[in-house]
Design a protein around this nucleic acid. Structure first.
Length: 577
RNA sequence: GCGCCUGUAGCUCAAUUGGAUAGAGCGCUUGGCUACGGACCAGGAGGUUCUGGGUUCAACUCCUAGCAGGCGCACCA
């Protein structure tokens, strides 16, 4: 039930009628015609730009054309109170109060589905996110991408698409070798009292490796840890398992659930990399060649070498990309191409990748490969989550990989909790750097939008509690013979924008619009609530300790939107705070 | 040198996928609590949307040339 879509269709039908009768000329494409939310001071409910879009084709001024259209639109619609033409050529529609009564009725009849976009073609999505190296716990930067991906998935699921959440496990390559060596040295430290070499840059110095080592020793008594070469393969598996256990725990504490963990190592051992390179060779996208040194690059150590390259420049990349290292092993990129081939072979309609800001430069390369594999530019969408700037005691908190100097997801959850973390991380567009201020996030006040929204839900709950009614159960009303006041309609109008908000969030993959919307709705609700102090008519519970049907379903409608929005964000809506 | 992201009120950010008089919070300031929970509300001040061109009936939004900040740029992942 999207009143903006509904009226867009009505208007298009009016246009078709008028053009059949020869009254107006229609262009071939009617894409530019929209229905929108008029600015508040116009005191109307829906506006459309139709007259401005069609004025040229009709050789009439937008205002003249609008006047013709206005008559035709109003003629067919008993719910319109007033329809007017404004300056550049906008048509503004104001509904009769009964429109809003009917509107609430629709929501109440099917409150679980309110906001869902029913027009969209249902698709099968694969969203890959987090995919952090399995070499240690997740930190704050990962959590933003994790939440972003999770909520995008929630929104797509809400719109009845099929979605699979996937984590690509980079369990192959040099980093894993270094990681396993680090675990091994921690084991030797415990068993043979050999101090861990903290000065080696290739090793992982983090304290968490000590507990990895302890666990591995404890549960693998049969292993002889004296000779690394003999146990390296086994130890690699065990070490990665330890990491993944920790990562999964971190994800769980953030409320993030992946459907699938996809192993890079398995991809390589199944020869999927060779297969995809053959595939691309046949299409002439792979060749042996040399990469030129970038201009202006001061690196003196540049070595030009011949290697297997992917022709990503054919797709707009600034250089071709290496697939194979000199030692014969695959580059990260090569196996990632194979991974994306695998995704495509699993018949997903759309692929979404969530990347951290530090990997943004990688997008061109991987999207080029997907285009080469699928002949489509639209198959893959990459979203970047920008940096999180931590602020503590009003000062920026610098993270470095050196021991004890970076904040993990565990720290974050322990300090501010899951709900606040999710809400605040999502409250800003993923394109902008995020200031994450520990002090204000923890504060239970108006500084914290999470509590502001939750509080509105708690207030609604308290009314139902007083009336001994259940907010969650369905409400049945016999007669919709009441009319809402202007104050109430202001809120109902906001509620009518909810499907539009979902729609845009979903199409643009911009979930930050949801917390923003919820905040605005909560704000309107709090204003209304306070009107009840001066004016008893605005109170929900009257002097006989009863509530009218009108107010009952009014509250129910508000709570429906708040609840489903908060569910999408993945935070709780407590009935008492 | 190149690529990506950002630039909007003193600060942190929105802006209905090109719409009308650019909106919130914080801060500043003036008011409102014997309550359906004040974790709230009402009012005020505060803007050349980084700059210059262009496209359009309409530009914070799109194109282009700059400026500033961030991130990245080999066989790492």
């Amino acid at each position: 039930m999207n009143i903006f879509d509904q009226y867009l269709n009505k208007i298009k039908n009016v246009l078709l009628d008028l053009s059949k009768n020869g009254n107006i000329v229609l262009p071939e494409i009617m894409d530019g015609i929209t229905t929108e939310i008029p600015p508040a001071h116009f005191k109307s409910d829906i506006s459309t730009n139709v007259a401005m879009v069609l004025s040229k084709a009709n050789n009439k001024s937008p205002l003249d054309l609008a006047n013709i259209l206005v008559k035709a639109i109003k003629e067919k619609d008993e719910l319109i109170d007033n329809i007017s033409v404004v300056k550049p050529g906008f048509i503004n529609i104001k509904f009769k109060p009964i429109f809003w009564t009917m509107f609430v009725k629709e929501i109440i009849k099917n409150s679980d589905n309110y906001g869902i976009n029913t027009n969209e073609k249902k698709q099968k999505y694969l969203i890959e996110f987090v995919s952090a190296n399995p070499t240690g716990p997740l930190h704050v930067g990962h959590s933003r991408g994790a939440i972003l991906g999770d909520v995008i998935a929630n929104i797509l699921l809400f719109n009845k698409h099929k979605v699979s959440r996937e984590y690509y496990v980079n369990d192959y390559g040099n980093q894993i070798i270094n990681f396993t060596k680090s675990v091994y040295l921690r084991i030797r430290e415990i068993l043979f009292k050999e101090p861990f070499p903290l000065d080696n840059e290739n090793l992982y110095p983090g304290d968490y490796l000590i507990s990895f080592a302890e666990n591995i020793i404890k549960f693998n008594k049969e292993i002889d840890f004296n000779n690394f070469d003999e146990i390296s393969e086994k130890l690699t598996t065990l070490s990665i398992d330890e990491s993944l256990k920790l990562i999964k725990k971190n994800l769980k504490s953030l409320g993030v659930n992946h459907d699938n963990f996809f192993s890079e190592k398995k991809l390589v051992s199944d020869n999927e990399v060779e297969k995809v390179i053959d595939f691309l060779k046949k299409k002439n996208f792979v060749y042996k060649g040399k990469i030129k040194k970038p201009e202006g690059d001061n690196n003196e150590n540049w070595v030009e070498r011949e290697q297997l390259l992917f022709k990503s420049t054919d797709f707009g990349d600034d250089k071709d990309r290496a697939l194979q290292k000199t030692d014969g092993t695959w580059t990260y990129f090569a196996s990632d191409v194979a991974y994306h081939k695998n995704k495509l072979d699993r018949k997903f309609d759309q692929l979404i990748n969530i990347l951290g800001a530090d990997h943004a430069g990688y997008i061109k390369r991987i999207s080029s490969s997907v285009e080469a594999l699928s002949n489509s530019r639209e198959k893959l969408t990459c979203k970047v989550s920008q940096l999180v700037k931590l602020i503590k005691d009003k000062k920026p908190f610098k993270m470095s990989k050196r021991k004890g100097d970076y904040i993990t997801v565990d720290d974050l959850i322990n300090e501010v909790g899951k709900d606040a973390t999710r809400f605040i991380m999502l409250n800003r567009s993923s394109d902008v750097e995020l200031d994450f201020d520990f002090d204000s996030v923890v504060e239970k006040s108006k500084d914290n939008p999470l509590y502001y929204v939750q509080y509105s839900y708690a207030r609604i709950s308290s009314v139902f509690r007083h009336l001994k009614k259940d907010l969650k159960s369905d409400i049945k009303i016999d007669k919709y013979d009441f009319r809402y006041s202007e104050d109430e309609i202001t809120i109902l109008k906001k509620i009518s924008e909810w499907p539009k908000c979902i729609d845009i969030s979903s199409k643009k993959l911009e979930p930050h619009r949801i917390p923003t919307f919820l905040y605005e709705l909560a704000s309107l609700f709090h204003s209304y609530w306070n009107l009840g102090k001066e004016n008893p008519d605005k109170r929900f519970i009257n002097e006989q300790k009863k509530i009218t049907n009108a107010k009952l379903i009014f509250l129910k409608s508000i709570s429906t939107v708040i609840k489903s929005g908060m569910d999408l964000v993945g935070v709780s809506t407590p009935e008492k705070m």
